[in-house]
Nucleic acid binder design. Structure first.
Lengths: 233, 233
DNA sequence: AATAAATGTGAAAAATATGTAACAAATCAA
DNA sequence: TTGATTTGTTACATATTTTTCACATTTATT
C-alpha cells in the first residue's frame, strides 16, 4: 500500500504519458496530467502536487521556462524526463531548479527508484514552508504564477529586475537582506556586487510600491547592511 | 566564491579520484578522500561531511554496503559514481539510500551540476531548521535570521558594529570576553586593538539595551580584562 | 588618603553610506 | 532604421556611522 502523494505528470506525447501513468497507477501513486507548459503551471498552482515529472519538449513553451516559473514560488521536487541527452541541457535544467534528470528512453524501474528517493526525502522534510503562489502584504500583492504585482488591486508595471527584486524581498519579509545577497540573487552569481545599481533600482521600486500609501515605508534601509521589507498589517 | 561544505570523495582508482578532487578544488569546494569502504565509513563518522561522492567498486567491500552502513546513522546526501550501468545496480543503490547515481564515464560538468542541486537542497533545509535561531535573555531578544534585535518587543535601531557587538556578547552569555577577543571578532583580525573605540560602542550599546530597565546591568565591566553579558532571569 | 591606572562620557571630526537626478548605454519592438 | 524602454554609471548633496580626543569618573594599589 502506498501513499497520499500527488504527482503531476507533464508530457505531451500520449504514448509516453500513458506509460508513465500506467506505471504510477500500478504502483498505487495518485497523479494528474498536463500536456503542455501552461497547463502544467496552472495545475502546479491549483493542485499543489508533491512531485512534478516534467518532459522538456513541450509544444507551447520551453521546459526550462516551466521549471523557472514553478521555482518562482514553489520548492516542489521536479524530475525532468527528456529526450535531450546533451550535458548542457542537463546542466541548464538542473541549475534552473530541477532535482533530477532522466533521459529517454528511460527505464520505468529507474524512474520508480528515483521517485522513491525523492519521496523519501520529502517525508524527512515533511511539513515544510508554505509555498503559496500568491503573496499578500498590506496593499501589496504578488501573483507569482502570473508574474504580476498589484498595489491596492491595480497592476504595477515593473521591469524584470524590479520584479525580481520585489519577489526576493517578499520571499524574505521581515528579514534584513544584505546588499551582496540581493545582488547575487537578482543579477546572478557573477556580479561585481555593485551597490550603486541596487540603490537606484530600490529607489524606483519604492516609488512604485509606496505610491501614496501608508505612513511607514514598506522597505526599510539598514545602513551599512542592506534592506528589509516590513510585514504590514 | 563558494562555501563551507565538506565533501567526502570515496574512490579507489587514483586517476579518477584525482579528476574529481581537481574539479572540486577548481570550484573551491573543500573535500576529504577515502580509497576503500572502511576508510570511507570512518571518515564519514569522524569528519561528518555534508555530501558523500561514492564509487561502488571498492576493493574491500561492496559500495551498497557502505551506503547502508552510513544510512544506519546519517542522512548525509550520497551521490554514487559507478562503472556499473545496469538498471538493477542503480535501483539497488538508490533504494539502499543513495540520493543520485552517475555512471562512468561521467561529465565533470554534470557532476558539478548535481552537486549544486544537492547543496541547494541542503541550504533550504538548513534555513528551515535555523528558523529557531532566536536568542532571548531577559527583555532582550535577537533574531539572527532577520538580523534584528528587540527590547521588550520593540525593535532596536543598532548600527552594524553595535549589532555585531551585541551578537558576540549574546553568543557568549555568562562568559567574560577580553578586549582583544572582542575587537578581533567585531573589527576583524587586522586591527590595532583599539580599546577606546570599544568603550564608546559599549557605552552606546548599553544605553540602548538598558533603557530604563532593571536594577542589575546586563553588561558587566571586568576591569583590566573585558566585558560580560549576564544571563538574566 | 593619595596616586596611578582603567573606564565612562560627550562632542567634534573624519570616514562612509545613501538617495537622487541626470545621462549614457544597451535592449527591444515595430 | 527609429523610438521607446530598460539598465547601468556618475556626481553630489545629505545623512549616518565610526573614530578620535579631552576630560570626568571609577577602581586598584600603596
Amino acid at each position: 500500500m502506498n501513499n497520499n502523494y500527488n504527482i503531476l505528470v507533464v508530457e505531451d506525447d500520449a504514448p509516453v504519458r500513458n506509460l508513465i501513468t500506467t506505471t504510477l497507477k500500478a504502483n498505487e501513486y495518485k497523479f494528474i496530467t498536463a500536456a503542455n507548459g501552461s497547463d502544467a503551471i496552472m495545475s502546479a498552482v491549483s493542485h499543489n502536487p508533491d512531485i512534478v515529472l516534467l518532459d522538456l519538449g513541450l509544444p507551447d513553451m520551453d521546459g526550462v521556462d516551466v521549471i523557472e516559473k514553478i521555482r518562482s514560488w514553489s520548492n516542489v521536487p521536479i524530475i525532468v524526463i527528456s529526450a535531450r541527452s546533451e550535458i548542457s541541457d542537463k546542466i541548464e535544467a538542473l541549475d534552473a531548479g530541477a532535482d533530477d534528470y532522466l533521459t529517454k528512453p528511460f527505464s520505468v524501474e529507474e524512474l520508480l527508484a528515483r521517485l522513491r528517493v525523492t519521496l523519501r526525502r520529502l517525508s524527512v522534510v515533511s511539513e515544510q514552508s508554505s509555498s503559496a503562489s500568491v503573496f499578500e502584504n498590506g496593499s501589496l500583492k504578488i501573483d507569482y504564477a502570473a508574474g504580476c504585482a498589484y498595489l491596492n488591486g491595480d497592476e504595477l508595471h515593473l521591469t524584470p529586475i524590479e520584479y525580481k527584486l520585489l519577489c526576493l524581498m517578499a520571499k524574505n519579509v521581515g528579514k534584513v537582506l544584505t546588499h551582496s545577497y540581493i545582488t547575487r540573487n537578482v543579477w546572478g552569481t557573477s556580479w561585481n556586487n555593485d551597490v550603486a545599481s541596487l540603490r537606484v533600482f530600490m529607489a524606483t521600486l519604492r516609488k512604485k510600491i509606496e505610491k501614496a500609501s501608508d505612513t511607514t515605508p514598506i522597505i526599510q534601509t539598514h545602513i551599512g547592511v542592506g534592506y528589509r521589507m516590513m510585514k504590514m498589517e
